[in-house]
Design a binder for these strands. Structure first.
Lengths: 133, 133
DNA sequence: TGTATTATTGATAACGAATCTCATTACTGT
DNA sequence: ACAGTAATGAGATTCGTTATCAATAATACA
């Protein structure tokens, strides 16, 4: 049976108070910085659970790290993510869903999953980057 | 200046004689099995170079491993990949390209990249999976 | 052709993300 | 309150990948 612990709650909350996607590692250090003695393994476990339960969204960064974010929509959706600050916009794309399914079945593939995410620089980071040069 | 070595050539060839995406590790052991004394670090380096030069395609597997494949089309494209055997079909999706660009700019994002890949079971693996049960 | 230059190699160490182990802790139903 | 047992966490472990650095070998040029 599943139990409620302050650790899980802490992870849920830390995730919720974050704008964009974060890695398990950085979430862990954020928690430690705020005085929580939570363990790294626990953060990984909590995030994995949240992802399974649909309370969190996960994706792989371009570098291959797993990133998590509190999920605001129940349904399947995709993301527009800022490479620089992690800001994320959830996007729906029925057209893309249909496209993925049809491409798969056209080639005889079944049980199709798809990974569709757009990475870029958000408006703010675009400005900052320009100024930096 | 860039030099031509048999190692690079061996990686290029091993990659070319492969149907689907392969990891650097498995490409390395394939090479070793055929008697080549090539080093693992060299395989990683060669693959990274090929990817930069556009001679190879790379993507992250669902488990976070980097996979490579000889690139047959020069242009940008996406993949339909069998989760089981690695068989890959290159797909073009102008509609998806346009969608990604417009979604990004609608939200003020610039320099948009996108990750669009479909994973599934190819026809053959679908049959095998059914038989296995 | 010989030689100096220097890119490349490869064994190994190092790294980082993620998972596993297992003794300890602390939820929860009774 | 108590027993049963899910959850925790420090640390070890695994695995993919990158860095180190001395040795090697591809190239330019005399």
């Amino acid at each position: 049976m599943k139990r409620n612990t302050w650790q899980r709650e802490a992870v849920r909350e830390a995730l919720g108070s974050n704008e964009g996607f974060v890695s398990a590692q950085s979430l862990h250090s954020t928690l430690r910085d705020t005085g929580s003695p939570i363990g790294l393994a626990t953060v990984y476990r909590a995030l994995a659970d949240l992802a399974v339960e649909g309370e969190a969204d996960s994706l792989q960064s371009l570098e291959g790290e797993s990133l998590y974010r509190a999920c605001t929509q129940g349904q399947h959706h995709h993301h527009l993510i800022c490479r620089n600050c992690g800001l994320t916009v959830e996007i729906e794309a029925d057209a893309v869903e249909l496209w993925a399914q049809s491409v798969a079945s056209e080639h005889g593939f079944t049980q199709a999953n798809h990974v569709v995410d757009v990475f870029g620089l958000c408006a703010e980071c675009t400005v900052q980057t320009r100024l930096a040069r």
